[in-house]
């Protein structure tokens, strides 16, 4: 089962590199924010996979939860700032 989790994590890392294209070259700041949000959701799963690989899920689950929380708050804050800017 552990090898399967490692394979899932490697696949997610590949997808993160693909999304980084949109973060770097995406026209305008809105495309970049959408792509960064997608990277954040993938990172959450990668953290859990790391927890299973190192056999310390009870530690990594807390980090994963805080990551989800800060990703959400960051998205809302960026949206609020761009809405005000005009």
């Amino acid at each position: 089962m552990n090898e399967f989790f490692v394979a899932v994590g490697l696949g997610l890392c590949l997808l993160v590199f693909l999304v980084l294209y949109r973060v770097i070259f995406g026209p305008g700041v809105f495309n970049r924010i959408a792509a960064i949000s997608a990277v954040g959701t993938k990172t959450l799963i990668i953290l859990l996979v790391l927890g299973y690989v190192y056999n310390r899920v009870d530690m990594f689950i807390d980090i994963s939860m805080v990551y989800a929380l800060l990703n959400f708050i960051g998205c809302i804050a960026a949206a609020k700032y761009l809405e005000m800017e005009r």
Partner: peptide, 21 residues
């Protein structure tokens, strides 16, 4: 588990920032 005073305080501050936003 991971965490402690500083990290918990940052999460509390983030919740207040969410309310303020």
């Amino acid at each position: 588990s991971p965490g402690g005073g500083f990290q918990g305080g940052v999460i509390l501050g983030a919740s207040m920032a969410l309310l303020l936003i």
